[in-house]
Structures are given as structure tokens and as C-alpha cells.
Design a protein around this nucleic acid. Structure first.
Lengths: 137, 137
DNA sequence: AGATTCGTAACTAATTTAGTTACATGAAAC
DNA sequence: GTTTCATGTAACTAAATTAGTTACGAATCT
């Protein structure tokens, strides 16, 4: 959806339009990207001509920010204690916390190097090359 | 559960025992660690005196192997195309695949340095220090 | 004033996961 | 060889999560 906004040339895209791109429902779109608004990644406006657009230049939006603004975790495991007092769990969690700290730093660093402009440029390259509609099913 | 096996001194632990450690059901235990058997991380035996034990020395069992044997993904996103033909999706997937390849290598490398023996040693340290039961609720 | 669009609550349906029961299979003990 | 114990696995239930939908209020433009 953000790539579409980057390609929209400043025009706001409605959640109706965005939802049709990914074959889902306008309300799902609004819910999904609400977190990006608070982070300034996108801006939404109501009423006639309203909709969604990028909150700043795509060169300044990284995948790391998007992931973080969406509240996604970069690592698919929990380190919440489930049996506080269990020393085995404590040892496991200590090891995983150490891993997580270092790993998240590495992953965020890598995702921070990929910008929305990169994705848009790659999309455009594919588009110019193949020259078909961008939303084929 | 694997730390418990490492601490069991070669004795097989039943899924009944293992399940009580993590407050769940024996069948859930069997289902959960079945994948570890095929990978040789654990061995199971039936009948009297049977149960579960490590398939090799804990020094030679890494968290990377465990994660892989359980079929866990190290990164919590999918790169399966949902709309083949959509050039935007293709650009996004291409970027994520590049990231995934590099990231998974990094993560596996890090997890490969943590062995079950490390966890068991840390557990033992905590145990000797505090000197209480290892399965307090 | 009327049309449009987001924001959000409330509800439904589908999917996933954990937990449970049941029973067949295999192995040790006596 | 029978009994006991333990895994392997299927089948079912319950709970939690997620996606989708409807409805409607609030904001904004023409």
C-alpha cells in the first residue's frame, strides 16, 4: 500500500482504492495502517478528496520504521516468563534475551537501509520492463 | 524440556514428567518434540523405563538446530506471493527475500553458538546460587 | 445541504493452537 | 506369557487470534 502511495504522485488514495489493490476490505486497511499515522509515515484526511498519502518523502521512510510503527516484532518468540521462579525458564530466557538484543539491533540496522523509495524504484523498473498493469490478479 | 533432559543424567524422562515441568499435557509434549526426534536431538523409547533423553551430548546441540528441527521460522513474515502478477508485491517480496537470506544466515550463526550445555550450565549456576527447587510455580 | 471519507465499535466467520480422551503399539518386569 | 508402563497418533473440544463485515458518527470539501 505504501508503494502505491509513493507512486500516487501526491494524490491521496482512499482506503477503498487501497483495499482493492490487496483484495481486502476498506476497514481492514484503515485498521492496518492506523499505527503508521501516529508514526508520521502516512497522513490521512477525511472528506471529499481525502484518503491516505505518505507523511514524508519515500527516501526517508525505511522498512525498519514501518515494521516498528506497525508494532511488529522482528523475532518470532516471546521472552515473557510463564513460570516465574522456574530456574530453567530463567536460564532459557536469559540466553534468548541476549540473543534478541543483539539480533534485533542487527535486523533493524539492515531494514533501516531499505527505503520505500528503493521499493518504488524496483517496482517502476519492473513496470517499465514488462509494461503491464500493476494489479493483475 | 531439553535442559531437564540434560540435567537428568542419562535417565529417560517421561512425557508425563516433562509436561508437569511446563504445566501442560503429556500429549502436547509428545507432539511438540516429535520433530526433535527425527533430527536426532532427542531419542524416545517406549515401555517400562522409557521416555525421552538427549540424542547426543548437550555440547553438540545448538539452539539453531533445535529451532530448525522444530520447523520454526527465524523471521516472522511470509514471502509467499498472494497476487502473482502484481508488480508491487514482486518488488516487496524481492526486497524481503534479500533481507531474509542475509538475516537468516546471521541469526542461525548466532543461535549456532549457543548450546544446550550453555543453558544447562547457566541453570546449574542459578540453582547452586539460590538453592531452591527448579520448578517453582 | 449533500456527498465523501476516515475512525471506530460491534458482530460474525475462519483459522490456529492448546488441551483432552482414547486406544493401538512396543518394551520391560515378573 | 501376562501385566504394566510409556510412546505414537487420531479425533474431538475449547480458546484465542485474525480477517472480514456492517453500521454509524465525525470531519471536510463542493
Amino acid at each position: 500500500m505504501l508503494v502505491h502511495m509513493a507512486e500516487a504522485g501526491g494524490r491521496a488514495l482512499t482506503s477503498e482504492e487501497l483495499s482493492s489493490f490487496i483484495h481486502t476490505n476498506p476497514v481492514v486497511v484503515r485498521r492496518s495502517i492506523a499505527g503508521l499515522r501516529e508514526a508520521g509515515v502516512v497522513a490521512s484526511s477525511r472528506g471529499h478528496g481525502g484518503g491516505w498519502q505518505l507523511g514524508r518523502a519515500p527516501e526517508r521512510i525505511t522498512l525498519a520504521e514501518i515494521s516498528s510503527a506497525l508494532g511488529e516484532t522482528l523475532l518470532p518468540f516471546s521472552t515473557e516468563p510463564e513460570s516465574p521462579g522456574c530456574l530453567v525458564e530463567q536460564a532459557v530466557i536469559a540466553a534468548l534475551e541476549g540473543f534478541r538484543t543483539e539480533a534485533e539491533r542487527l535486523l533493524a540496522e539492515k531494514l533501516g537501509r531499505i527505503t520505500l523509495a528503493d521499493l518504488a524504484a524496483d517496482f517502476r523498473r519492473r513496470y517499465d520492463e514488462i509494461g503491464v498493469t500493476s494489479h493483475a490478479v
